[in-house]
Design a binder for these strands. Structure first.
Length: 378
RNA sequence: GUGGCCAUGGUGAAACGGUUAUCACAGCGGGUUGUGGUCCCGCUAUUACGGGUUCGAUUCCCGUUGGCCACC
């Protein structure tokens, strides 16, 4: 089981400094959780991920169910042994795939709406590739047409086989274009599913309930009250986060202001460099984000001044590190020129080097934030 | 020296006597937040040069220059 201890609360914001204890060790919070969807931080070994600063990882129920299947992972001795990761680990429930493979894909939208969109999602509407009912979701794989039913009970069952320290309740992540009625109906469903997850899960594994409610203040508060009153070991905050970053902070605060203070809060899928301090100030303890590794695989390095696109020819002539102040091994041992060459030549090592550097950069930002809470300036 | 073929953006190729010359790659700009492993969107050319035929030529004709092949 897990334990959570708050070492210090900020006097200037909702930020908390804490320690999350799991059967596989502890994590100092606030912390970035590395994304290992298919039981790997893409392009890296588990020990590399640890060296890059990852203290905890999150894998995915939907993807691991499709391949290799939770039976294989269970026989391997669980996720930790399967991927040789001996530190804390959580699994996502597959609820996000209801969005990303559903309305998200249909409408070409992410969780943060950039431009005003004409599209609206309302009650009765279904995405193209999946069917959402009160019991769960029927997926049709876009890869091979394979069909799969996932509901709260199924998701918890799979997550038990995967064997992470922390599992997440099965939820529906509503799209930014969902109207009030759709969001209301979806939220009732997510709350009902939360109760089923609580009934089904075994007690030696921690379970987080997930708050939804879209962009609607009262629905978000209602969800935080409802989920917060249930005996979960921690809480996930999911869904969309408005049209811009300021709105995002406000929306997170709606929820953290209501959730019980004694248990950890995990913000799902948010954490660009310019988000990290603001979400921590809003009272988030852990968060996961694909940005460091996703951008790395597209040739982009994060540095203090912004981003470098190593696909560009200009970097071939720069024989200095990605970031001269960075202490990661990539910046100690390799030049922009070499990494740019690898990326342009589509050599896989380039992806590993950029992934390592980016993760190190993001984790350093989180470490800096922890330090600043300790010093009373965040 | 003679005969034949060719000359289209940075590169490799398409097209056709007629509205904004097509494609790929490269280049530049933008996107990519509970991961669709190299992705999405946008921008980038007075068709080697000179002359002719035609209402109109990248497309037809002549010449110049440059390249490739064959023969002596």
């Amino acid at each position: 089981m897990i334990g959570f201890r708050i070492k210090k609360k900020s006097g200037r914001s909702a930020a908390r400094l804490g320690v999350l204890k799991t059967p596989h060790g502890e994590v100092e919070t606030p912390a970035l959780v590395g994304v290992a969807t298919q039981a790997t931080v893409k392009t890296m070994t588990a020990s590399q991920a640890e060296a890059a600063g990852c203290g905890m990882l999150i894998a995915n129920t939907y993807h691991l169910h499709l391949k290799p299947g939770e039976g294989v992972v269970r026989k391997a001795g669980g996720l930790h042994r399967f991927m040789n990761w001996n530190r804390p680990m959580m699994t996502d429930s597959g609820g996000f795939q209801v969005f990303s493979l559903g309305f998200g894909m249909d409408l070409g939208q992410g969780k943060i709406l950039r431009r005003k969109s004409d599209s609206r999602v309302t009650v009765g509407q279904q995405p193209r590739l999946l069917k959402i009912t009160d019991d769960g979701v029927e997926f049709t794989s876009y890869m091979d047409g394979q069909r799969l039913f996932l509901g709260p009970a199924e998701s918890v069952g799979i997550q038990e086989s995967l064997g992470a320290d922390i599992i997440l309740a099965f939820d529906e992540c509503t799209p930014p274009s969902a109207d009030r009625k759709y969001t209301e109906r979806s939220l009732e469903r997510t709350h009902r599913w939360a109760r089923v997850c609580l009934e089904k899960h075994r007690t030696d594994q921690a379970l987080y309930g997930i708050v939804q409610g879209g962009k609607f203040h009262d629905l978000r508060r209602h969800s935080a009250e409802t989920i917060g009153s249930m005996p979960f070991d921690g809480f996930g905050i999911g869904g969309e986060f408005g049209d811009d970053k300021r709105q995002m902070s406000r929306m997170i605060r709606w929820v953290t202001g209501v959730l019980p203070e004694d248990r950890p809060r995990h913000l799902l899928g948010i954490g660009h460099p310019d988000d990290i301090r603001r979400i921590i100030r809003a009272g988030v303890d852990t968060f996961d984000c694909t940005a460091p590794t996703h951008y790395a695989r597209h040739g982009t390095a994060f540095v203090p001044s912004g981003r470098l696109d190593l696909n560009q020819v200009q970097y071939l002539k720069q024989f200095r590190p990605l970031d001269s102040k960075c202490s990661c091994f990539v910046c100690q041992e390799h030049t922009r020129s070499y990494i740019s060459h690898l990326i342009r030549a589509k050599e896989v090592l380039g992806l590993t080097l950029l992934s390592f550097h980016n993760l190190h950069f993001f984790h350093a930002l989180a470490a800096r934030a922890r330090e600043d809470i300790k010093r009373g300036i965040l």
